[in-house]
Design a protein around this nucleic acid. Structure first.
Length: 476
DNA sequence: TTTTGAGTTGTTCGA
DNA sequence: GTCGAACAACTCAAA
């Protein structure tokens, strides 16, 4: 049997990997390859934080492959040409991969498939890493769902996701390994090293993913409902970047939760699996509404009067809005490449409703700074916040950054961690320093406008302005 | 076929 | 201090 190529993209793992498994079962040597071709994902090539993650995930995948007698070959795009060259060099006559759902990747993969088959290669595309086939659930008229709950209910009536299977014990190697680029030469790491906070926070790779999942199953599920909304607590799984890069597939998580929670899963386990459902739903929507990465799903929002305000945008990005919970979130993002889900909603509402800046500005910033940046999830999240997407937040749902802070970060521990210049303020004022008495501020070493900004907008006025802008959509 | 009720994550106002 | 109503328009399924 001639060798097979396994084209790794965002399935950077060895266990529960149908494409790899099929290639190994075929019998010949297996040549794993990653092709760096960011242009092919335009207009959403991986951002800076994603590239950092990718660098380390590729290193981990290579190490895992070497432990099984193989290695990871690195090449540069265009993908079709790189794969054809690799097949020529190695005598391979089949290419295996896992499908993606992003519009650019779908188009690229179709073109690659055509070009490979034209030169006589077999191609095998495994289904995307999702719990449910995006074509399976259809609403009444055979149309695609736009609301989560009925979609999820329909999915729960489908056969459950397949059970995961282990990594191949041995991966047959070719007689001679083809040339590989050096990982460093892909230029994925930042030129000036700003990634210290990322290194402290994350362990990219399959082993890191397994560690996070294990921790969640051991002590996270029981408390999940209560603590998942508290940004100061480690109440969420933090599996999102591992999921994005496919270091762990959703089926593995789904079944691991099932097994650990037994026949009668508690509410924590059910809620946690439901979050996996949201990831699936985001991908489902991207399959059925591919234009929503760049345009609102609700067409009325095309004429929404978004403001342009470079200073406001920059204050938001840098965590200098004067609203402590917003600034804490934006600084957590900048430092760690990740932000707690509750805080993502708060900062998104602030950008879109308080500053009236387009959800697309927010999506772009998150895309560049998040280690878990995922086009489907990012699109769903920002269109939800913008009020223009599927199952969107109603127009009148405008988060109050003070009451959100007081509700979900009552003692201010989260703010103190990420906005150290406010750390000595008493809890009563930590979310509204501008209302504190001068002597309270002085005692805490806070001088508003100097050590910490005054609010860049008045929330009450901003809220009324947003409601007016939304009303302007309805007249006509 | 038509109607009805509910829909991840909220806030404010007035009784 | 607490509580219910109001704040659109649309999707979806059950009645």
């Amino acid at each position: 049997m001639r060798p097979s190529i396994v084209w790794f993209r965002r399935d950077l793992r060895l266990s529960d990997h149908p494409a790899l498994d099929a290639a190994v079962r075929r019998g010949g040597a297996v040549i794993p390859v990653f092709v760096w071709a960011p242009d092919e994902e335009s207009p959403w090539p991986p951002g800076a934080a994603s590239r950092w993650w990718l660098h380390h995930s590729l290193a981990a995948l290579d190490a895992d492959l070497r432990a099984r007698g193989a290695r990871l070959v690195l090449r540069a795009g265009p993908s079709g040409r790189a794969l054809a060259a690799l097949a020529r060099e190695t005598g391979a006559n089949a290419v295996f991969w896992t499908s993606l759902v992003e519009p650019a990747a779908v188009a690229r993969d179709a073109a690659v498939r055509e070009s490979l088959e034209a030169i006589g290669l077999e191609t095998h595309a495994a289904p995307p890493d999702l719990l449910f086939d995006p074509q399976a659930a259809r609403s009444g008229a055979g149309r695609a769902y736009q609301v989560f709950t009925p979609w999820y209910a329909a999915c729960l009536r489908l056969p459950p996701p397949e059970k995961p299977f282990p990594a191949p014990r041995h991966i047959p190697a070719p007689a001679r390994w083809p040339a590989s680029l050096n990982l460093a030469s892909l230029g994925l790491l930042p030129r000036t090293d700003w990634a210290g906070g990322l290194r402290e926070t994350w362990t990219p790779g399959e082993a890191g993913a397994r560690e996070r999942l294990g921790r969640m199953l051991r002590k996270g599920l029981r408390d999940y409902s209560a603590s998942r909304d508290m940004p100061a607590r480690a109440g969420t799984s933090r599996l999102s970047p591992h999921l994005h890069w496919g270091e762990m597939g959703p089926r593995q998580i789904f079944h691991a939760v099932r097994e650990s929670s037994g026949a009668r899963p508690g509410t924590g386990a059910r809620e946690f699996v439901r979050q996996l459902g949201w990831r699936d739903f985001a991908h489902y929507l991207l399959v059925h509404f591919p234009r929503t990465t760049d345009a609102p799903l609700r067409l009325a929002y095309r004429r929404f009067p978004w403001r342009h305000d470079a200073d406001g945008l920059q204050a938001w990005q840098r965590g200098r809005t004067g609203y402590p919970i917003v600034d804490a979130g934006m600084r957590e993002l900048w430092h760690t490449g990740w932000m707690h889900n509750r805080v993502r909603m708060i900062v998104a509402s602030f950008l879109v409703k308080d500053l009236l800046l387009s959800w697309r500005e927010g999506a772009r910033w998150f895309w560049d700074t998040l280690v878990d940046a995922d086009l489907a999830n990012n699109t769903l999240g920002w269109q939800w916040a913008g009020g223009c997407g599927a199952d969107a937040a109603p127009y009148f749902r405008i988060f109050n950054p003070v009451s959100q802070g007081e509700r979900f970060d009552a003692g201010g521990a989260y703010v103190r961690r990420w906005v150290p210049e406010l750390a000595r303020l008493p809890a009563d004022w930590i979310h509204r320093p501008w209302e504190a008495a001068p002597q309270v501020l002085r005692a805490a070493g806070v001088e508003l406008g100097r050590t910490y900004p005054l609010p860049i907008v008045d929330h009450g006025a901003a809220r009324r302005r947003a409601l007016q802008a939304l009303a302007s959509l309805r007249r006509t």
